[in-house]
Every structure is written in C-alpha cells, then in structure tokens.
C-alpha cells in the first residue's frame, strides 16, 4: 500500500505489518512527521501490533528520523506490541551504534530474519 502523499510502503505478512520507506533520504522534517503519523495510525489499528520496519531503500537519515523511531518504539511498547528493524545499511547502522540506539531496538540483518524473530 502506498497511496496519495504516503511516504511508506506497507504490506502484511500474516500478523506482521512490514513497512518500507519510499524516500532514500529521511531528512525532511515534514516527511518525518508524516511518517510518524502514518506509523502511529498503523500501531493504533492493532491491539498488539507487530511492526517490521525495513531500511532497505534508505541511504541517509537524520537525528529527527531517529527521534520518530523512538516515539514509534514507545508507542508500540505502550500497546504491548513488538517492533523489529531490518536491512540497515552499514553506514546507517553506525549512526545507531554511535547513538547507542542499537541497544534500544531489535535489529536484524534481513527482512526474513526479522520476520522469523516474531515467532
């Protein structure tokens, strides 16, 4: 699903909602806010949401994007859901390491491995 002004591609794999980014650069504040709102709506749509966010298409992100991911993570925890991240480029993974957010998020090398981790 990617319609209108959506910045996300969303698909379902059994009980897991898989999210991919349309933009290669997640820098623009307006887009980041839109992404946060779209993911929040997905979280609210499920009683115990299982979200997998793939960074397969992403070349750059900013601390503002990290902030939105943290907000998403907090919302999922409050909903007693599960969040996994996958397919993070090594350069971007380094950003997670520098900020120590690799400790906060459960990150898997591939979408398949992340999907398997929900079981």
């Amino acid at each position: 699903m990617a319609s209108g002004d959506s910045r996300l591609r969303v698909k379902q794999d059994n009980s897991v909602t898989i999210i991919e980014f349309i933009d290669r650069n997640i820098l623009d504040e307006a887009n980041i806010q839109l992404i946060g709102e779209e993911i929040a709506a997905l979280i609210e749509a499920e009683p115990e949401p299982k979200l997998l966010i793939s960074f397969a298409n992403v070349d750059h992100l900013s601390s503002a994007a990290l902030g939105t991911l943290i907000t998403v993570n907090n919302k999922i925890r409050n909903s007693e859901g599960l969040l996994r991240l996958s397919d993070i480029d090594p350069q971007i993974y380094e950003v997670f390491v520098i900020t120590k957010l690799h400790k906060l998020f459960e990150i898997h090398p591939t979408t398949e491995q992340a999907l398997a981790s929900f079981n």
Binding site: S63, L66, G67, T68, I70, T71, N73, N74, V95, I98, T99, K100, L101, K103, L104
Partner: peptide, 21 residues
C-alpha cells in the same frame, strides 16, 4: 548525554553527538 541509559528513549538531543562523532 543522549547515550545515557535514562535518555535513550528521549526522541531528541542527538544532533550534537552525531556532529562530534
């Protein structure tokens, strides 16, 4: 310090850390 355990879940305050890194 945004990397402190108590600050990891705060959504802001990482810009200067990244610039320095």
């Amino acid at each position: 310090d945004p990397t402190a355990e108590e600050n990891l879940q705060r959504p802001t305050g990482r810009g200067v850390l990244l610039i320095r890194a």
